[in-house]
Design a protein around this nucleic acid. Structure first.
Lengths: 338, 338
DNA sequence: GAGCGGCTCTATAACGTTATACAGGTGATG
DNA sequence: CATCACCTGTATAACGTTATAGAGCCGCTC
């Protein structure tokens, strides 16, 4: 604690600036002096004071990934990838928990936090296009997920309408006709649900199936408990569904639980599909059919885009990138176990 | 971006230092000047440059929580609590992923990371007492979990031997006699498993049951996949167990999956108990009986201890704190659903 | 009324780094 | 041989904050 450039400079018999140049490679340094300096660094065990560097350079080397819940495995899996990618690019990634709270999201957009991080990857839930547009100019911002569209920021997400289509097509293909959706939200609160609901409706229409509003269950948030409660309500209908498409895997897993408690067989009585491909769904009983986004691609792309913006690199191509997804058939829709 | 103390000082017609004193409350400021300064701050929208502040103060306001895997829900749930507690104390908590890698853990102990964080909460997995003792003096370190004992650092954990006792007593109480353990590790790699295995053995002995080495399954790490594989192996024994105690909930959930695939009923044929009380176990089919550590207590205590050390506060009481736990009976050991 | 102590406020030197301007030395060129 | 350009290295001024030393002012005491 406390070996600084000056100590190294003294030890190596060179100036402060030369040591800085060796460390940073900012200006050419003769081979002999470089070696002497490097030796001094190794002997004294120097590592730069990042606070000072930050002050001077105006960058902290910190980027933040703000998600609505840390405990959602999808975000944990995404974070693990993003942290590794950030480290590879020389940045430290800080996790930020908005707890799906509007105030927290707004604070992130223009709060004082901004001064300590170089850029932000945000998965918005409670804020919309207007709030993002109203944001004062500042650090680069990359959006992930489906909260906000049509803003002048990089945006990485899957094509949610297409993902819903794929899920519903699959359910139709295995003979289901009364397909429910769990995870709609009231109002314009969370656009993601809107897109997934839209895909659901479009695909029903394309299959010649009627749209039944009673089969669309609303939830406040998107956890296991929400899925379980919604499924119970659906089962209480006079004419319950023969398939369920959940907003995400957690909701779907909650639905599986409700079905088990009520004594229904999956997939024989009710088939279930989710979105996210969290590991949990590969071990649930039954295993969960899901739409698997390419988390690796999303995490890496988001970090790379952000870092590119921070470093002022030229970024070509459109702001919005739709990453690939695929349908993984598992037991909850009647595919043999892996 | 860029309103600084000087701007405020000019606007308010006072000196730089006075503004700093208003912001920090470090020295008394007259009521009239305080108001004038405060007004200037509000008008210009000032927020302190944390980099500069930290350079000057020598602290960054960042603490790190290093865990072996972000995707283990136990750590995610713990992190959510710790982040909130840190924020309440004016600190930002950074998640660090050691990926259960020895090199990563060592790097955290004395690496350059140290210079950017004020303190570290570490859940050690691959390092032992010696490595911690060999650590150069530096930032405060708080240990959580069961990796390392008898070192001059704060340590927050449950009593693992007692936790195992409780689990085994419960299984014995519901009439099980061939009780397996999944999650032992070879050598002294991870002491936690040793403690849990020890409690398992002691409790068997206390119940007058024989210790059968074949019923103790080793795993590399402690994920669902490890639990599933180990359970398959146990089922392949000529005389399979009638109960399984998993190192943690993830392992136990993997075991549940293997049992389902093999067509065994839980709890009728095999009862299952885990440790951690992750949310997943409250929704699995069947729901999972578990030893629930007080995560809130662990997370808050770890952060508070660390911050107290950072701020040089007098900390009374022993270094090692054992936090409470309780047994939650659920379906996997034959308790009626909640 | 001179001296003293308490109260506000100010000037300024750090903290450790990087970027800019500049100095010294060397080799090549006219 | 003088000039120039280059290549290395140096001195130094920031970056924005906080802590220290001290200056000015007021009222009080002897």
């Amino acid at each position: 604690m406390g070996v600084n450039l000056k100590d190294i400079a003294q030890r190596a018999g060179v100036s402060l600036a030369t040591v800085s140049n060796v460390v940073n490679g900012y200006r050419p340094v003769g081979e002999r002096t470089r070696q002497r300096v490097q030796q001094a660094i190794d002997e004294l065990g120097y590592s730069p004071n990042l606070g000072a560097r930050h002050l001077r350079r105006g960058r902290t080397g910190l980027i933040a990934l703000a998600v609505p819940e840390l405990t959602n495995p999808y975000f944990a899996e995404l974070a693990e990838i993003a942290i590794a990618e950030a480290a590879a690019l020389g940045y430290t990634l800080v996790m930020e928990n908005t707890a799906a709270d509007r105030g927290a999201e707004l604070a992130l957009l223009d709060g004082s936090r901004q001064r300590i991080i170089d850029g932000l990857i945000l998965s918005p839930v409670r804020i919309g296009r207007e709030e993002v547009l109203a944001r004062p100019a500042g650090n680069p911002l990359v959006l992930i997920g489906e909260g906000v569209y049509d803003v002048p920021h990089d945006h990485i997400a899957i094509d949610n309408v297409a993902a819903s289509h794929a899920a519903i097509r699959h359910l139709v293909a295995i003979g289901r006709r009364r397909i429910a959706f769990i995870g709609a939200t009231p109002g314009g609160d969370r656009q993601s649900a809107h897109l997934r609901v839209r895909g659901y409706r479009e695909a029903l229409a394309a299959a010649g199936l009627p749209y039944r509003p009673r089969l669309v269950a609303r939830t406040d948030v998107f956890g296991r408990l929400d899925g379980m409660r919604a499924m119970r309500d659906l089962l209480a209908l006079g004419d319950p569904p023969d398939a369920v498409f959940g907003y995400n895997d957690l909701v779907a897993i909650g639905a599986l639980r409700a079905l088990a408690e009520a004594g229904h067989r999956v997939p024989e009585d009710v088939a279930v599909v989710g979105i996210d491909d969290i590991e949990e769904g590969r071990f649930s009983v039954p295993t969960l059919t899901t739409i698997a986004p390419d988390k690796r691609e999303i995490g890496r792309l988001a970090v790379r885009r952000l870092v590119a913006r921070i470093e002022g690199a030229e970024v070509t191509g459109p702001l919005t990138v739709q990453t690939p997804f695929r349908l993984l058939r598992r037991e909850s829709t009647g595919t043999p176990a892996a």
